[in-house]
């Protein structure tokens, strides 16, 4: 009995320590964003909103925000369209194309972004798309599509395809049957997939670093260049915004589905 209690305590202490390790760095970022001084220290000596005020005066950050938004929306649209249609096709017929497709979309996720970044940079320079928004959107799509695709595969595999037959049988053509019978039942999945695609684009930085210029740089890219020059709580402010956006996304996704399901989709 004594030993069991000891084991229990050890087990609990173990996972609580990891819990702290997982969340502490993010907490540090958020807390330091409210520091008054210009030096990065945790915990800060005094708190103020001075860096938040400064943020809204810096055009570089603001235009980076616009760029991130533009790239994020672009990635979401392309990745969701590609991922949903392909997953739908794969569900209809698990033929050879599907067998090729599944590993093919997965492999880019396992290749270090630095190598993808290099190969894409070289490629886009040749294609004349260097430093364009499009090049970043396409690179991010390469990473976001697999997630949409696998989320949708899982959603479609749980969908009762007899409903599609029933709609057709009752007179709905290919498009109307999809809109009336399939879409209402998978829209949560599509929404979560799209949300993930947006977040991935918003947060991705290695490929963006290799593919953007001063005029197309995204938030993480600006943050990176700033940090390499000097440690500035301004980065904490931006980071806090990004963390809050992810937080909101998780809450929305959790409402649309549930946390446990979401976790399994992300792996």
């Amino acid at each position: 009995m004594h030993r069991e209690q000891f084991e229990n305590a050890l087990f609990r202490a173990g996972y609580l320590a990891i819990l702290v390790f997982m969340l502490l760095p993010l907490a540090v970022v958020v807390v330091t964003s409210f520091a008054e001084s210009g030096n990065l220290a945790f915990p800060p000596e005094s708190y103020s909103l001075v860096h938040y005020r400064a943020f809204f005066e810096q055009t570089r950050w603001l235009s980076a925000f616009d760029n991130s938004l533009l790239v994020g929306v672009g990635t979401t649209i392309v990745a969701t369209t590609l991922g949903v249609t392909a997953a739908f096709g794969h569900e209809i017929d698990d033929g050879r194309a599907g067998q090729v497709l599944a590993p093919l979309v997965l492999v880019p996720l396992l290749i270090p972004p630095i190598i993808l970044g290099i190969s894409m940079r070289v490629y886009f320079v040749r294609a004349g798309l260097e430093a364009s928004y499009l090049s970043i959107v396409l690179a991010h799509t390469l990473w976001a599509t697999p997630l949409v695709y696998f989320v949708m595969r899982s959603v479609f595999s749980r969908f009762d395809w007899q409903l599609l037959d029933a709609a057709k049988d009752l007179g709905a053509g290919p498009i109307r049957s999809f809109v009336y019978a399939v879409l209402p039942n998978v829209k949560h999945g599509i929404f979560v997939g799209a949300l993930l695609a947006f977040i991935i684009s918003l947060q991705e930085f290695v490929m963006a670093l290799f593919l953007s210029s001063r005029s197309t740089e995204t938030i993480p890219v600006v943050a990176w260049t700033q940090i390499r020059q000097s440690l500035d709580p301004m980065v904490s402010v931006v980071s806090t915004f990004l963390i809050v956006i992810s937080l909101i996304a998780i809450v929305i996704a959790t409402i649309a589905t549930n946390l446990d399901w979401l976790s399994k989709q992300l792996s």
């Binding site: 996972y15 990891i18 819990l19 997982m22 969340l23 502490l24 760095p25 993010l26 540090v28 970022v29 330091t32 990065l40 220290a41 945790f42 977040i199 918003l202 947060q203 991705e204 930085f205 290695v206 938030i219 993480p220 943050a223 990176w224 940090i227 440690l231 980065v235 980071s239 990004l242 963390i243 992810s246 937080l247 996304a249 998780i250 946390l259 446990d260 979401l262 976790s263 992300l266």
Partner: peptide
Amino acid sequence: SALLFSVILPLLTTLVIKTYAFMPL
């Protein structure tokens, strides 16, 4: 839920922030 959340939030946070956070620590 708390444990899952502690995994998902960093997962959806950019590498830049994740590494940057260790500097003051």
